[in-house]
Design a protein around this nucleic acid. Structure first.
Length: 192
DNA sequence: GATAAGATTAACT
DNA sequence: GTTAATCTTATCC
């Protein structure tokens, strides 16, 4: 029996970002195909963080992050890419964890189709890439991650000694904060 | 109503 | 290393 995420462990978004490393994302496509991936890299965003979409308070865009933890916050950026986050914090608090990279575990053939042309090593090693590989878009905005067709399972903790802490990628504000975490020896990390 | 910037990626030179 | 792609949201008129 797979174990679902414990929302209690997402109440602190930074502890939640560490907790989500090693967790397994399961995506069920409309035709029944199952895609799976192990989370290899995450970033934490909290409400008093100038780099967070929730910094200026609730809005239509960021509403999911102010809801209960363990749901999907999905946003579109640079006119091109969808990015997938797991909501964190307590209800009413705007926080989330960006999933930056996963290791493909199942359904890799389908991921190659969705990521047309990309070599295997670059299938899911970035936030926009993994969303494309798993066919995640705004249809899943606010989705409860305990329910199909998009679920996240707790696969046991990754050893603290195998987690690397680093600065976040692609942000302008609070760029020095060490709020990015990745599995040190994973080949699917977006950037060392 | 208009405009600037963005939690990115891929295709260039 | 540089830049285009492409569009939503926020933040102003």
């Amino acid at each position: 029996m797979p174990t679902f995420l414990d929302p209690q462990k997402l109440r602190d978004p930074t502890a939640g970002a560490r907790y989500l490393l090693g967790a397994v994302i399961e995506r069920r496509l409309d035709d029944g195909t199952i895609l799976k991936g192990r989370i290899a890299e995450t970033e934490s965003y909290h409400q008093s963080d100038p780099a967070s979409h929730t910094y200026r308070g609730p809005s239509a865009r960021n509403a999911a992050m102010f809801g209960p933890p363990g749901h999907a916050y999905i946003y579109f950026t640079y006119g091109v890419h969808w990015c997938f986050n797991v909501t964190a914090g307590v209800e009413g608090e705007g926080a989330g964890v960006l999933i930056r990279a996963i290791e493909p575990l199942a359904g890799i053939e389908r991921m190659r189709e969705f990521r047309k042309g990309a070599p295997d090593a670059q299938l899911t090693n970035g936030p926009g890439k993994l969303a494309q590989a798993l066919a995640i878009d705004k249809m899943l905005y606010g989705h409860d991650l305990r329910q199909p067709p998009l679920q996240v399972y707790d696969a046991g903790n990754v050893k603290a000694s195998s987690i690397t802490t680093a600065t976040r990628i692609g942000i302008r504000l609070a760029a020095d904060e060490l709020l990015r975490f990745y599995i040190t020896d994973s080949p699917y990390v977006s950037k060392k």
